[in-house]
Design a protein around this nucleic acid. Sequence first.
RNA 1: GGCCCGUUCGUCUAUCGGUUAGGACAAGCGGUUUUCAUCCGCUAAAGAGGGGUUCGACUCCCCUACGGGCUACCA
Length: 510
Amino acid sequence: MTERRVRVRFAPSPTGALHIGGVRTALYNYLFAKKHGGDFVLRIEDTDQTRFVPGAEEYIIESLKWLGIAPDEGIGFGDGKHAPYRQSERKPMYKQYAMQLIEAGHAYYAFDTPEDLEAMRERLKASNVDAKYDPITRSAMKNSLTLSEDEVKIRIENGDPFVIRFKMPRKEEVKFHDEIRGWVHVNTAQLDDKVLYKSDGMPTYHLANVVDDYLMETTHVIRGEEWLPSAPLHILLYRAFGWEDVMPKFAHLPLLLKPEGNGKLSKRDGDRLGFPVFPLQWTDPNTGETSSGYRESGYLPEAVINLLALLGWNPGNNLELMTKDQMIELFTLDRVSKHGAKFDQNKAKWFNQQYLRHTDNAVLAAELKKDVEAHNLSFSDAYILRTCELIKEKITFVKELWSFGEYFFIAPTKYDEGVIAKRWNEKSPLVLQDTIQLLRPLEEYTAATIEAAYNEALAKNGVANKDFMQLLRVCLSGVAGGPPIFEMAELFGKQETIARLQRAMDTINT
RNA sequence: GGCCCGUUCGUCUAUCGGUUAGGACAAGCGGUUUUCAUCCGCUAAAGAGGGGUUCGACUCCCCUACGGGCUACCA
């Protein structure tokens, strides 16, 4: 067989926001495609019309764009030769494939009502048997295997609702090679006659994904572990269609688990866990409930990608901070772990901090400028840029540029009480007053000259530097920690520094 | 319940029969920064349990336990 061009797909359902587990699946597909110079396709699996959520599709597209893992082809990213990429728009294609299966004896019509199915399950449960529509039970149900040919024909012509079910072989060992887990064996005796084609004329996931992957020339199906149990059915479908020679390889990814260690992360977790489970902020159009997103929380997309990549994969060389290109180069499915991973918020923060530090100050300044302007304040770009330089090492998130650095733009009105209680004494106003006096005549106002003036004021009053330094900081910024004091004061400028010291003196003294 | 997948420090993981079981985050301690959320150093911290196979098992096999997934005309 000639080597086919690698084609992978990310195939979410538009049932709400994409959560980070889904994002990671998309990421691994992206990395794999790029690694092999192949195509990454976005396909929307909207075969369940009852679960459609407005805005979900746009959300998925925007998320992938923000994260920098845009597909090459598919909804929102341009049609390739396999359009359309929305399964609801492919609806007319599926019927013929279902029919092909019926004709070949691999599938059959079933006319059972929900009540019939319920009764069957009740009956089987009562006799302590696995309740499933299978090679045994189907003989007692209403389907084209039990009904006469005429009866079936009449029912269909009458427009009776029907589904098409896969005719699962009675007892057959199905084995397939998973790129991550190795050989997986399942006996068809455990499987049931899955519905392939629903009474509303839509295929189920099982039929649609196999048909689409075939038509779209998918070479590798990289998806979550929740699909592992149905993989044997999919294998059987490829066989029934006679597509085994072009059947994609399968790789089932371990799941992302909740930090408390019970269950997989789900989109319903929202903000409950104390960290975002969504890439972008999301407001549920039905409930109106809003969940935070990584973007809005100040995470950088590169950091999110990096931390997600390492949740279930590692390059095997202790490398943790990687550019996207490095990840592409190093990514292989055989280095994906088999077990689920709990999301670690601490590590996530650390990643963001690392990336924030490596972000160009001009980029950070542009972000900070938005906040400054949002508060109706006017500062020069140079001032804002310098603020970023001074505080970037102190913070973890972009939004902290403002929350941490607010005092660069708004003089404090409150002063850290702990520091005041510990350091403020009768000499304090004297030192401040002298400092102000010495600052006033300075022509060259720099960190060095400010420090010299301050030291002189200390000496004059016989106060030790270590007993006053933090107080000086609090007088200037209101808070106990921050960047180097004199550099900060230099940026404030002489007038503002003096004003702040004066104000602190007046406020604290009373 | 049944089936499938999994199980190394608190967390993410390295190890593809022979290692003092390595790294990172978090933690603790110490230092630097007279501030700190920075930086540096150090410490503590793991092969679920039991059987095999083997000269030798974290690594291979089996059992048990535990965790996870699936079990819809949802994906």
